Structures are given as C-alpha cells and as structure tokens.
Computed example of a mutant assay.
Amino acid sequence: MEPKSEKRTPGRPRVFDRERALAAAMRLFWQHGFEGTSMAQLTDAMQINPPSLYAAFGSKDNLYRETLSHYLAEYGRLLVETLNTEGDGRQAMHHMLRTAAALFTDTSHPSGCMVSNAAVHCAAENARLAELLTQHRTHARNLIQARLAQAQQAGELSSTADIPHLATYFAMVIQGMALQARDGADRATLEQLGDLALRAWPAQRSSP
C-alpha cells in the first residue's frame, strides 16, 4: 500500500519524500519524546501508513535514531559551530550560550533541545535509546571541555581552573536552559541565565 499523499497533478509520480517524513517525525519526537509519541501520531504527521513506515525505517526505534541524527545535523551543529568561532574562549562560550537561548525559544520548531527534552528514565525495553542520548550529552560536554582546555593553553582561562568540572557546569547550564524553555522561559530570560553562568569563568590573573 502506498503512503498517503496530496492529490497529484497529471504526469507527477507519487513518491515517498523521506526527508519530509523525517522532519515531521523529528518534530513529534522533539515535542513528546520517544515514549510519548504514538505510531498513530507518526503515521499521520508523516503521511504514511504503518506498513510503509516499517518498510522504510524498520521500526519506531530506528526511526527515532534517524530523526535524532537529522536533529543533530540540522540544529545541534549550530551549538557546536559556536565553539570554533573567532575570538577567545570566553567569547566562544558566550556565543554558544546566546545561540542556545535563540535556538531553544525559536517558535518555528518545538522549544528546548531534542536531546535534553528526552526522558532521562526510559522503560527497560528502551534502555539502548537512553544510552544513546547519554552518549550524545557526554559528547557535547567533551567538546566544551576541549574548547576550555584550548582556552587554558592560550592563557584565556586560569591555569588552575578545573576544566572537567567547568565543562560539566556549562553543559549542565545549557541543558537547564533547554528545560527552562520547555517550561515557557523566553529568549531574554535564557540570555540572562547564560550571562550569569559566564561569571563562573575563572579568568587568568594578571602578573603583579
């Protein structure tokens, strides 16, 4: 059975638009999480019937993994790219926090972050997905840690700064901002939270 589709014009073949379907599924998972999204919601949003969904993606689990990759490539990269912007480490972190505030409150898509929004505790049968999300959060923290280490080597960060714990702190702030956005915090509020977080930046002391 073919996927549901809008009425086609003469000569126009009816095809399954995989990218469009993935984007629709991503928004649902972003909004409701894996366990909170039903197959009925997915097939309706993706304009596809259950047999075609399974034929195209194999399972709901596989579909979620693909949408997560789609999210990271489309939105997650925006935060990663800020770590490589010109300027010193503190400016890069400030840019990252401001970008997060804008992304998490953008009304063109669900609020917050798809990775942070996901439930920390999942049913036993979804343990592998929970582990995958943990891996992505850990990877994000490691990227922040690498940028902080670079700033420390450049003398932009105190030589006595505890880089691993500082990286965990900034990762925690970004995850918290995502959850605050889910609870209705606006961009200005998140930007203020980011500015407060930057006060933890231990600047290198000037020589006497």
Score class of each variant (00 low, 15 high):
residue 188 A to D: 04
residue 62 N to G: 08
residue 166 L to P: 07
residue 21 A to W: 01
residue 68 L to F: 14
residue 182 R to V: 06
residue 189 T to I: 09
residue 20 R to H: 07
residue 51 P to T: 02
residue 187 R to C: 11
residue 93 M to N: 06
residue 27 R to D: 03
residue 66 E to S: 10
residue 13 P to E: 07
residue 18 R to W: 00
residue 65 R to E: 09
residue 63 L to P: 05
residue 94 H to A: 10
residue 137 R to L: 08
residue 205 R to K: 11
residue 85 T to F: 06
residue 159 S to C: 12
residue 144 I to K: 01
residue 5 S to P: 06
residue 201 W to T: 03
residue 38 S to F: 05
residue 12 R to C: 12
residue 47 Q to R: 04
residue 208 P to S: 14
residue 36 G to Y: 01
residue 102 A to W: 12
residue 75 Y to V: 13
residue 100 A to E: 02
residue 132 L to Y: 11
residue 173 V to W: 05
residue 26 M to T: 04
residue 183 D to V: 12
residue 82 T to Q: 07
residue 133 L to R: 14
residue 136 H to I: 09
residue 108 S to M: 10
residue 18 R to G: 02
residue 135 Q to M: 11
residue 81 E to T: 11
residue 3 P to C: 03
residue 116 S to N: 07
residue 202 P to D: 10
residue 25 A to I: 00
residue 115 V to W: 00
residue 162 D to C: 15
residue 44 D to N: 03
residue 156 E to K: 01
residue 96 M to K: 00
residue 126 N to P: 09
residue 207 S to Q: 11
residue 51 P to R: 00
residue 4 K to W: 15
residue 119 A to W: 03
residue 74 E to I: 09
residue 129 L to S: 04
residue 51 P to V: 03
residue 2 E to T: 07
residue 141 R to H: 08
residue 188 A to Q: 04
residue 105 T to Y: 02
